[in-house]
Nucleic acid binder design. Structure first.
Length: 258
DNA sequence: AAAATTCACAACCGCACGGGT
DNA sequence: AACCCGTGCGGTTGTGAATTT
């Protein structure tokens, strides 16, 4: 909302959330964290926000031993955090070359574009945005999603929607092409369900207005243009595989259309 | 000014996967 | 084959800050 219009500080200072400690192995926590000389004394793993001291400990450990083996950290330096928590802290906050602060407009556009292409693959997206974490991207997207759903506006801007529609058409086309080696009943090519869908499919139009003319190819051309070997193949096989092949094509088309 | 709502974000959780034993 | 362990991923939650009503 207005957040993006307001100049953001270079590094946002956040304040503690969720401070809680959980006993290990179900033991109640009777010892102070990090304290005590007795190795057999019940210890607790800390949860919640990280302190500067904990960050420093983790930084030092990774500097010495490198990334990985996160579960060894607690044993080696007595940091009362589970391996998962250490890994997350390092990946999201401590590792070098992280970019702090709000996403730029360019980054936001990239996220939207990538999301249109690959969906909720946050980690994969993060590899395309150096210095950004999957968590940041996920948070950004979820906030954006809520906002747009509430406002009743489309998730993607028109140009992206157009690209999605085009890719879906291409995918449908490829799926149909994959059926090239499989025979279909050319005698019913203009009447079967698949061709009906093809003729009436244009995702950019309201359902009632979908017309064949906007689809990248016409079904009557399939046999000559896209299915050049159709007739000879058709003559070799029984009707049953034909209907199966068309059924699969139908399902695939329905899947990408709706 | 106060209350309600929304935003931003850190962190946790459960699950899946791969490698080792 | 079955189990364990470490790791990574995506979903979700909880909290303070910011904004709106």
């Amino acid at each position: 909302m207005v957040h993006k219009d307001v100049p953001q500080p270079e590094v946002k200072i956040k304040y503690p959330v969720r401070v809680k400690e959980e006993p290990i192995l179900g033991l109640s926590d009777s010892s102070s964290p990090g304290g005590g000389d007795d190795d057999d004394a019940p210890q607790s793993l800390k949860k919640g926000p990280w302190s500067a001291e904990e960050d420093a400990l983790l930084m030092e450990y990774v500097k010495k031993h490198g990334e990985g083996n996160w579960n060894a950290i607690q044993k080696n330096i007595g940091l009362q955090r589970c391996g998962k928590s250490c890994r997350l802290r390092w990946a999201n906050h401590l590792r070098p070359n992280l970019i702090k602060g709000s996403f730029t407009q360019e980054e936001e556009n990239l996220i939207i574009k990538y999301h249109a292409e690959i969906g909720n693959k946050w980690a994969q997206m993060a590899t395309y945005l150096p210095g950004r974490t999957d968590n940041e991207i996920k948070n950004f997207w979820n906030t954006r999603l809520k906002r747009r759903q509430r406002a009743g506006v489309p998730l993607y801007p028109p140009e992206i929607q157009a690209q999605i529609a085009m890719k879906k058409r291409q995918r449908a086309f490829m799926l149909m092409q994959n059926q090239v080696q499989r025979p279909i009943n050319i005698g019913n090519a203009g009447n079967d369900e698949t061709n009906y869908l093809l003729r009436n499919f244009d995702p950019s139009l309201p359902w009632q207005q979908r017309q064949a003319s906007t689809f990248p190819f016409k079904t009557e051309h399939l046999s000559t243009k896209w299915y050049p070997n159709y007739i000879s193949d058709h003559q070799k096989v029984s009707p049953q595989p034909m209907s199966l092949a068309m059924g699969q094509a139908n399902n695939a088309l329905i899947d990408v259309m709706f």
